[in-house]
Nucleic acid binder design. Structure first.
Length: 569
DNA sequence: TGCGGCTATTG
DNA sequence: CACAATAGCCGCAG
């Protein structure tokens, strides 16, 4: 029995490609899998190893059911990467909205249990059998008598017995089956789930960075690495002095305090309501103080957020910059990353350089939000405009305005402009694209009224009731935009997981996801194929995501050695 | 010590 | 300066 591979056992039990199989992994690396009871395997599931899971994944490619991204991280730590999954937490966020998605919370939703009575984790392992007892112990049941999940399980106390681990795996499978009947679009549940696998891989693998190049850039911007705390202090004071020498004597200000900076500027005859860069920018030519302050801000920003301590904390000795990744944030469902991976200053991106023998293939979606609007609203006229590489040209023609005006009018519609209130271009936009504008207005109105929204891909966006008129207006803009941003995020993730799946043979690894941009790290001999892969996957995704097929999505794809090289060949 | 405000960076 | 995010520092309340 034990010498028979997991793949063989599952196949003999009738498991086929895409079938849901519960999977749980213990901190010590023990793995339990639980196919559906009807498939003829033991109802309690079976114990196996991470290596066996990898083999079975290759042989059958089922859809492994996990409670959260944590399982993927544990599998990766055990050296195993699976092809697809059903992530209960990710699908929970899709169906029910909000951020919280722990097993007990998701389970209570699926069983229709009162949410105010979901038991809190008291930190006690009251279900753990006494390991020193000679009495045979029965594995505890993860479902308590009242129907709620036992909080101990979600924390990992269950891992201590194989029986409990098998039950935990089976329960994940049951949760997934229930979720499957509740999701609006299965395809979204699949891509949002597998995006969690991608996130775990991004966190584990990191972004290739050339340390020497990054240190050179930092030296240019903020000086060499200080050798001591004292030296760091001296450098900081010297930087401050470059600004303060332009200030009026008697007004020594703490440059890190906005209030004091405002007072200092006022004493120099510069009166501003706040000290934001865009407000000070026009005054820089007439004031050496303002000019010095703005330069100080840039350097200070690098020094505090992207300086040597950031580098030390996040750049591994293997030249990989690592941060945590989430598959969908609390609002509209975009991916987020920490460690500055999503907001690294353009200047520093020069140090993001492919490893020897490799190249980056960079692809970003063009005008993704207005194209998504055309798709999700079903506006035929706007869909027609997406046939153009630059859709603002036909839109401008239709409205009888120039391209910049058309673009501003479109963005104002999607984001809910507060100042100016439209004008002639906005009125023509309503007439030319009534379906798209109606879709946005519906979202705005529902959000203002506190009605929950649902994106094209089926993600619930929760809206709260009440609030001041200003908050109500803010909610309207939020809801209007969430429908577009959220749908764009769903399309992007579907594209990303498709590239992930197809890129294996080329050795093409996704090393960064950035809302509408994918960065692949590829052996240089495969770079041209990777370019085609990205384009093919986008076409495939567009067909699957927006089946009517009348909206054209475009990507700008280039092969580069450094991330900052926009269009090298 | 925690948290809102201000600021900067990115898509 | 609309929509979204992460992140650091300051100033104030507890």
């Amino acid at each position: 029995m034990g010498d028979q591979g997991l793949g063989t056992r599952l196949r003999e039990a009738g498991v086929r490609r895409g079938d849901l199989i519960g999977l749980a992994i213990a901190p010590d690396g023990a793995v339990a899998v639980a196919p559906r009871a009807s498939s003829g395997t033991p109802a309690d599931g079976l114990m196996t190893t991470a290596g066996q899971v990898a083999q079975a994944d290759e042989e059958i490619r089922p859809r492994w059911v996990t409670w959260s991204q944590e399982t993927a991280r544990q599998l990766i730590a055990a050296g195993v990467r699976v092809s697809t999954c059903w992530d209960v937490a990710a699908v929970h966020r899709l169906i029910y909205g909000g951020w919280r998605a722990d097993p007990g919370w998701a389970w209570a939703h699926l069983r229709g249990l009162p949410l105010d009575k979901v038991p809190a984790d008291n930190g006690k392992d009251n279900l753990i059998p006494d390991l020193f007892s000679s009495e045979p112990t029965e594995a505890p049941d993860p479902v308590a008598a009242d129907g709620y999940l036992e909080p101990t399980f979600a924390r990992g106390g269950w891992a201590r017995t194989p029986e409990a681990l098998r039950k935990w795996a089976r329960l994940a499978g049951e949760a997934a089956e229930m979720q499957r009947s509740a999701v609006e679009r299965i395809a979204t549940a699949h891509s949002e789930s597998t995006a969690e696998l991608l996130c775990a891989e991004l966190a584990a693998d990191g972004l290739p960075v050339l340390l020497s190049a990054l240190e050179e850039l930092l030296a240019d911007l903020i000086g060499p690495r200080p050798r001591s705390e004292q030296e760091a202090h001296v450098i900081r004071a010297a930087r401050d002095a470059e600004v303060l020498k332009h200030a009026s004597p008697g007004f020594p200000a703490d440059l890190r305090s906005p209030v004091q900076v405002k007072t200092m500027l006022s004493a120099a005859g510069v009166d501003v309501p706040d000290t934001r860069a865009w407000r000070l920018e026009p005054l820089a030519d007439g004031s050496p103080l303002v000019k010095a302050l703005l330069e100080w801000r840039k350097a200070e920003r690098i020094a505090t957020t992207y300086g040597y301590s950031w580098l030390d904390a996040n750049l591994g000795s293997d030249g990989r910059l690592r941060g945590g990744w989430t598959g969908s944030d609390g609002a509209a469902g975009r991916m987020t990353a920490s460690a500055g991976l999503h907001n690294m200053p353009a200047m520093l991106r020069r140090a993001v350089i492919a490893e020897p023998g490799h190249l980056f293939v960079r692809a970003d979606l063009g005008q993704i939000e207005p194209r998504v609007l055309a798709a999700v609203s079903g506006d035929r006229a706007l869909a027609q405009a997406t046939q153009n590489d630059d859709m603002y040209l036909p839109v401008g023609q239709e409205l009888g305005v120039d391209r910049p005006t058309a673009k501003v009018a479109m963005i104002a519609a999607m984001y809910g402009q507060t100042t100016g209130h439209g004008g002639e271009a906005a009125r023509r936009m309503r007439k030319a694209y009534p379906v798209a504008m109606g879709y946005l207005d519906d979202g705005d109105r529902n959000a203002r009224n506190g009605n929950d929204l649902r994106t094209y891909g089926g993600r619930l966006v929760r809206m709260s009731q009440g609030g001041s008129p200003a908050q109500v207006a803010g909610r309207g803009r939020y809801g209007r935009n969430a429908l577009i941003q959220g749908a764009a995020a769903e399309l992007f993730k579907m594209w990303a997981v498709t590239v992930r799946a197809r890129g294996n043979d080329l050795g093409a690894a996704i090393v960064l996801c950035l809302h509408d941009e994918l960065l692949l790290h590829v052996p240089e001999e495969n770079a041209d194929q990777a370019v085609r892969l990205l384009a093919d996957c986008l076409a495939e995704t567009a067909r699957r995501w927006a089946p009517r097929g009348d909206v054209r999505f475009i990507a700008d794809i280039s092969v580069v050695r450094s991330w900052s090289d926009a269009k090298a060949g």
